[in-house]
Amino acid sequence: MKTNTDQHTNTDPLTRPSAPLLGRAALVTGGSRGIGAATVLRLAREGADVALTYVNGKDAAANVVREVEALGRRAVALRADSADPAEAAGAVERAADALGGLDVLVNNAGVGLLGPIEGFSVADLDRVLAVNVRGVFLTAQAAAGRMADGGRIITIGSCMTQRVPGPGGTLYAMSKSALIGLTKALARELGGRGITANIIHPGPIDTDMNPADGPFADGQSALTALGRFGTADEVASTVAHLAGATYVTGAEFAVDGGHAA
């Protein structure tokens, strides 16, 4: 894998007791907020240099970059819309060029659109599939060409691929379910190079898009076995584990508080 001769080490045991990803280069799509931002910071704490993409959150992305740099790692924010085929694939090339290679890809960017099936337009369908499916495929395809042997592809799915608890989720659940097949196929296709591919299914997660004190929070919490929302850091910790795991591939991981139990 890529080595980095300009390594900065954080010796504070409270902030980083170890750096298992030291010298690795990672790309996190949709990394300016929520699960994406938490993942960027977690990977940086474990030693990785990280590129992140954003669409509208330029200031938020810049703040994440500053936090990564404060940890002694390199970071770069790239504006790239996953709905645009050229930008989705191009983000991988730009990240690899900026960081000197690519070892870890986290497909996090996505859009959620819920509602009655009869209310969705063709434009709605195209937008959700463009971001949640085509964009993920294209970034993975580009990463396969740039990633070092032994790399990691980690995709953020959804608890709604395991259990759809009520109406309104047809389009979103369909789009996220497609990523399961993609992940398993990537594991087979790239396994000969030691590249692993896995997918994480978050449950209700406390973010600005779906806050734990929001109007629909009580109902979502009640659907979990633990009776609460998860945190973005709890998802990011599983991403970091998979970024270092060597004998786990083609697998699904529920980080959902028992939503699918």
Rank of each mutant, 00 (worst) to 15 (best):
F216W: 11
D6S: 03
D206C: 01
A142K: 13
L129D: 06
A197V: 02
E118Y: 04
P13F: 01
P85S: 11
F216H: 13
G57H: 12
L179H: 14
T231Q: 14
D126E: 14
T5N: 09
I154D: 01
V68A: 03
M160W: 14
D84A: 14
Q162V: 06
G227C: 03
A173E: 07
G230C: 02
G150L: 05
L52G: 00
P85L: 02
S121I: 09
G34H: 13
A89G: 15
A70W: 01
K58Q: 13
A236L: 15
G203L: 00
D81K: 05
A96C: 09
V255I: 09
G150H: 08
F229R: 12
V136M: 15
G72K: 12
G157S: 06
N63Q: 10
R73C: 02
A98G: 09
N198V: 07
V55D: 10
P85G: 05
N107A: 13
L125F: 15
A148C: 11
K184Q: 15
G166Q: 15
T161C: 11
G157A: 03
Q141V: 02
E234M: 04
A109Y: 11
V128Y: 06
P202W: 01
A80I: 02
I153T: 12
A62M: 13
A51I: 04
T9E: 10
D6P: 00
D81Q: 07
A38I: 04
S158H: 12
A38S: 10
D213C: 01
S32C: 00
E46H: 04
L171Q: 12
L14D: 13
P202Q: 03
V64H: 13
P204G: 06
M174E: 08
S158D: 13
G257I: 06
A144C: 14
I199L: 12
A62D: 15
G194R: 04
G90R: 07
R74M: 08
T11R: 08
A197G: 03
D208V: 13
D208A: 13
E252A: 04
V128Q: 06
D81L: 02
P211E: 02
A245L: 07
K184Y: 07
D103V: 05
L171K: 12
S158R: 11
A38W: 07
G57R: 13
A254L: 06
S121V: 10
N4M: 09
H259L: 00
V235I: 11
M147N: 10
D149N: 09
N56R: 08
G203N: 09
G168E: 01
A251E: 03
A62N: 15
A61Y: 03
G101A: 06
P167F: 10
L171R: 10
G145A: 14
R24M: 11
D126G: 09
E67F: 11
G203R: 05
D103Q: 07
R127S: 07
D256M: 04
R146A: 11
G258H: 08
A89C: 11
G181D: 03
E87I: 03
A96P: 07
F120H: 14
E252R: 02
D124N: 08
R66G: 11
N107M: 02
G150R: 02
R228E: 09
G30W: 05
H201G: 08
D126A: 13
A19H: 14
